[in-house]
Design a protein around this nucleic acid. Structure first.
Lengths: 225, 225, 225, 225
DNA sequence: TATGAATGAGACTTCATTCAT
DNA sequence: TATGAATGAAGTCTCATTCAT
């Protein structure tokens, strides 16, 4: 789920646009609520989020949240689906098949890295879901239905690399994906504790570039024949 | 913070021992509360945890929680400190200095891997802390005071390896530590969403061994001259 | 603050009217709560008052108190403002400017006397506030904004009296107001201890009239040239 | 109860002397608790006072409060008795019988004024008692037993004044006492609200002397034949 | 479609007090 | 005489949700 692709717009901006939902634009009202719900759930977690807090952000009353979403849980599920959906929509634009295996891997790793770096909201909601044992992801048919192409792309690259003798054989795409994702995700998800314990400012641009290079090289070395 | 050493007993078992705290054994009563608080906070998070739920697990009343800890937040901080402390206490027993560089790295990586694998509670509480922006870790002098030796150990190994020509020079121990930790942590922290999305059972013993080997080899290849 | 004017209805009657607030009459519900809150705070003080006790008096649940007032403290502040406001609203109806100086003073003193005698609630809440060092009065902008005309009226009378040679010159209206208020207030505020220690029934109608006359004469003699 | 006499030591000083009660000096421990209880009750009122807060001030544990006093209410009663007793003990030292009537009254009024001015604790506890309808004063046999000589003294002065033709006849000592006490008490008890509403600093030394003179003159004029 | 008013249930916390030695 | 440990009851307040139009 940690995936990878093009620019899904950086993290949602909080109350950036207090777009008046009123009057009588149901589609807009609904979208409005969802946007502010993302902010609240991402910042506070599922238990920590307050329906009142979301209501305060929007211009329609709290009652609307129940009108459109039925319950806090359902709203959370839709937030989850929205953030997962945004991610998925950015995939399949890498055109990795056109690149040489080493270049394709490099591009894939860099993309994954940048992607997590830019989508803190997504990283946080996934962490929150794991605290809840992925209960809501499991429950969501929408997320199940999302087509996941990353393993296919990666598998194809590895196969080409092996054929060309630049990568070794017998590699499982899923393992490689785990190797890539873990670094890209953790760097963002754990930046607060890691940063505090080791006194390092992970978001620093200089450090970020160093780490981007590190994970690229690390993966490539691991794949090499 | 993710680190390193020998077996600190697997995750706390829930209401396993409803040891009667009564009567008049403050040390035990306190410890008792803390143990059950770990279970609750780790399962539910900070906001999701219920003081009542903790009270139900112990035989002393809910009132005792406030008698000993003052507030839910303070209890959470002590849970945090306990889990961090357990981790730290297992460090410094690896005696890595006695091993050849490559062996030392292998041992360190395997230890880190096993350690996270066995300490799901710790992994979860760290995830929870990050959702709270490490607010409570930052607030805890006890955690600040915990001696963090992992970077020293790792640095010493890298230096020896470079001297002996087996590792390249210019490596930052902190970067390497991040590389190791991220994989070991993520594999546990995100097992629910990752497992669900990619339909893989990460805790499976067979898969676990394959991943253990992968992170070892990956790190060693990255370090090699 | 102890002052002056026409009959603002005697002390609030306790649970006299358990008026059904339901349904959907926010103004009434709010007023309802406030009325019963006055009773509770006046009887029990700020610390002694119980939100539950107020809730029991009204037909809407305790939850409503927080819905409309936010906190016990805020409810207390509004009680304070209400009682101060009732007092202020009774001022400016004396038309003292139309009376000869001696008559005006007599009328003012009698009014003040009667006013305190009838408004035990106000006397009690002011006593309570002083136990709290007027913390909440200081905090209330509403009370600050209340126009206080008593000193102006009194000053005007003193000036006229001095001009006419019936009062001496150099009198500070504030001092005179203090002289009048202290007697009228104390007689009510301390009736329990004073009555007990000296075995006198201050509310007795006969005694009351005697004291009413005493403070009138006392003040007039003090002012006389 | 507002009485009158010589220097009973200014208001109790808070934690001024953290006299170690320990070890094994029951008389001192008891006294210690009582002193700190005065501070707490006077500052917070009966409902507002916290047994814990008193315990924190003393060096013996909270348990001692119950050991010596049985309950919070009983402790409060003893505080009440102590403060009333201190007052009474300062009486009967004025030797007013030796003075000419006018001088005696002047001395009595000034004494009463100074006395209240110096004994804020007493003024506050009396206010607190009135909030509680003098319930505990009524309950205390000790206070009942305290000999109250002020009315006798005052009556004797008025009688002599009438005989000598300087005071009018038919005056009730109790009424005169009420006139004097009310001003002296109110000036202290209501200094917070009065000061805030009318923006005057009643404790100011200059203002105090002016008011001291005013109440003297006011009473004397009232008494004059 | 939209919404202001209302709420039961339960959250965290504090209180004066008693237990047991 | 002295006390550390423990607590039932009640306190203030918050929560997601429904009522009624």
């Amino acid at each position: 789920m940690t995936m990878t692709s093009e620019l899904p717009a950086a993290s949602v901006e909080p109350g950036a646009e207090p777009r008046k939902s009123r009057k009588n634009n149901p589609e807009k009202t609904r979208e409005n609520i969802l946007q502010e719900a993302i902010v609240e759930f991402v910042q506070q977690g599922l238990s920590g989020a307050r329906v009142d807090a979301i209501a305060e952000r929007i211009h329609t009353s709290k009652r609307m949240i129940y009108y459109y979403f039925g319950s806090k849980e359902q709203l959370y599920v839709e937030v989850l689906e929205k953030l997962y959906g945004d991610i998925r929509n950015t995939e399949n634009r890498l055109h990795l098949a056109e690149l040489a295996p080493v270049e394709a891997i490099r591009r894939l790793v860099e993309f994954t890295f940048d992607h997590h770096d830019r989508n803190v909201d997504f990283v946080r909601i996934v962490s929150i879901e794991n605290i809840h044992n992925a209960e809501y992801v499991k429950r969501s048919d929408a997320i199940k239905a999302m087509n996941n192409t990353i393993l296919d792309s990666l598998g194809e690259i590895l196969r080409r690399g092996a054929e060309q003798g630049v990568f070794r054989t017998g590699l499982d795409p899923l393992d490689v994906h785990l190797l890539i994702s873990s670094f890209c995700f953790y760097r963002v998800s754990n930046r607060h504790t890691f940063g505090e314990i080791f006194q390092i400012d992970l978001p620093d641009e200089h450090i970020k570039q160093r780490h981007r290079e590190m994970i690229c090289e690390s993966v490539l070395r691991y794949l090499q024949a």
